[in-house]
Write a protein that binds this DNA or RNA. Structure first.
Lengths: 349, 349
DNA sequence: CTGAAAGCGCTAACAC
DNA sequence: GTGTTAGCGCTTTCAG
């Protein structure tokens, strides 16, 4: 239990460079009003001694913590990890977030918090008090949870909300779900499909509604009815199976599913009925996690730019910490990637 | 740029409970020599005020940081994330690591550092100085990099090395690669295969040698020669293709590949030659990332218990911080999971 | 068993 | 421009 202390501190640098602590501090924080020669001298000492500021001490001194907290839903994330279904949402967040943080001298810390309201405020407060991050990134369903956004606002901590446009403060980032859903539907309509079913995501995700909206928009645009072609899902494989069965019963020749697992389930259901994808039925999925590309056939999917949107979120947070202002919602567009699960309507249909 | 300070500090708790700062500190740190009634009173105040200690301040005061740093190879990790091939190594590390950290009031921070020697010491020192973790978890190839282990030892920071048994201090954790490789080979031999080829991993991973050893051991045990059946790979798909071609040319009827990507490549190569898996050729892979289960057929694979081994690593680190001693290497055994890519030797072979 | 003092490494505020 | 002072929230001495 050796009590380790910082080996080389600002004091050593100051002594080595023959200046005051404060001057070193100024150099570290790139403050103005330091003569260039002083600055060089200090930086030489820093490099020579291999000095790196202690983020704990910086925080104690009242400055930034240089920490960005990425928050995800505990229950869902752990379930995904345990299932090992190949979702790489978290990996992509880390990819975009960590790299952009690193570019600005920040670090990203990844944490899980429950959505369940008993814990949520306590847990979040604990994470904030313990870590004291300069900014927080929220993903659905946290990003539109008023308990969370409210707490963050009261605490005066900058935050970015991915996948939410509801009021509640913070920066809003989206991935153009409505347009993407419309594109997916148009892609199918363009191949001659007229009975294009939709499997929705759970209500507690704002993007579920956006995706429905895009589909509805497209169906109307090409003059198709949507009567019994909208079904409910909850992002689970099982719900995808049920919804697909319903749509096939209703005579759908194409299906847009609000996530990969439900799309995979839909393909399986089509085959269970002795029919073929894309020969008889076309399927499009949302998210485009890796499993979709290893599937046979690879699924046509809406690819979500998670890494990019997380990177943008980090950028907004850091810009904010630097006093730059930006309130307009940011949209990083998802892309439809046509693959083997969609094809022309078969004339026999 | 509001300069946020801790909203409720140890002072508030002390005032509320009518005790000294020190007593509160003792309660927080579960130190002995506090009367139960005092303790209860303090804990009541803590709960009431929702107090959570600032980890920065704790660190400043000279105690632990309650941070465990998980270090991975930057280049390889980022490449994996970019490729989106569905590897969930990182996810499984987070799963095992974060949950176990949380159980003990710790937090896990995930970082990437380059293996390239120019940066490595600087980068690692920077991360250590900035974060001041109580423990570090190393994965291959970092876990047997003397630059890293040496630096950590000199700094007096506890560390755990996953996938390495080389000397160099720290706790050592392995996943029984040799035994797993032997089991995989025996599984094939048990199905009648006699020409069982092996695709090795890169030399700079200790586990590459262990896996070769297990295969060699099994081949000898059942009296089979290994002459031209050992090929080199580097964990990449391309290298798997080349190695598989070589093995098939040599008349192998079964292949053990040192990771999933190379196994997938092997299956593809078999098919490219108009032959079938497992009808003509059996394939076993190492790692068992999700993609393997979504493949057709699902691959028989050695499933690596990443989550469990990371959890154990965290446990060792925390136990060490608590003054408990433990030097023996820990082995969390990988399991062979038989699936559809292996079958009996076809008589026509 | 509990309290008061000093100090961790750094920054903000104020002087010079 | 640069140095000095005080203090962040906590833990470690060391008294009582």
């Amino acid at each position: 239990m050796a009590r380790r202390r910082q080996s080389v501190t600002i004091k050593h640098v100051a002594a080595d460079a023959g200046v005051s602590l404060q001057t070193v501090s100024r150099v570290i924080n790139k403050e103005p009003n330091v003569r260039p020669e002083m600055m060089e001298r200090v930086q030489a000492s820093i490099a020579k001694l291999g000095y790196v500021p202690s983020i704990a001490a910086q925080r104690m001194g009242g400055s930034r913590s240089y920490l960005i907290l990425a928050l995800n839903d505990r229950e869902r994330t752990i379930a995904d990890w345990r299932k090992r279904e190949g979702s790489d949402w978290i990996d992509q967040m880390l990819l975009g977030g960590m790299l952009t943080c690193a570019e600005h001298g920040y670090r990203m810390i990844f944490e899980l918090v429950d959505t369940h309201s008993d814990h949520i405020e306590r847990e979040l407060s604990a994470a904030l008090a313990a870590l004291q991050p300069d900014g927080v990134i929220l993903t659905p369903p946290h990003s539109h949870n008023p308990l969370i956004t409210g707490l963050l606002e009261r605490a005066g901590i900058a935050f970015a909300r991915i996948g939410s446009l509801k009021p509640g403060g913070g920066f809003r980032l989206t991935m153009g779900d409505e347009v993407a859903s419309r594109d997916a539907t148009m892609h199918l309509a363009g191949m001659g499909h007229r009975r294009i079913g939709f499997i929705a995501g759970p209500d507690d995700y704002e993007l579920s509604a956006w995706r429905i909206e895009g589909w509805r928009w497209a169906m109307e645009a090409v003059g198709l009815g949507i009567d019994d072609l909208l079904t409910a899902g909850d992002f689970s494989y099982a719900s995808g199976t049920a919804a697909a069965a319903q749509l096939l019963d209703a005579g759908a020749t194409a299906i847009v599913a609000s996530n990969d697992q439900m799309a995979l389930a839909a393909v399986a259901e089509v085959r269970r009925r002795g029919r073929d994808v894309p020969g008889d039925i076309s399927v499009v999925s949302f998210d485009d996690t890796p499993v979709v590309r290893f599937h046979h056939p690879p699924l046509t999917a809406v690819s979500q730019p998670i890494a990019e949107v997380t990177s943008r979120a980090v950028g907004l947070l850091i810009a904010d910490a630097n006093g730059e202002t930006n309130i307009a919602p940011v949209e990083v567009k998802a892309q439809l990637v046509p693959r083997g699960s969609t094809g022309p309507l078969r004339s026999s249909n």
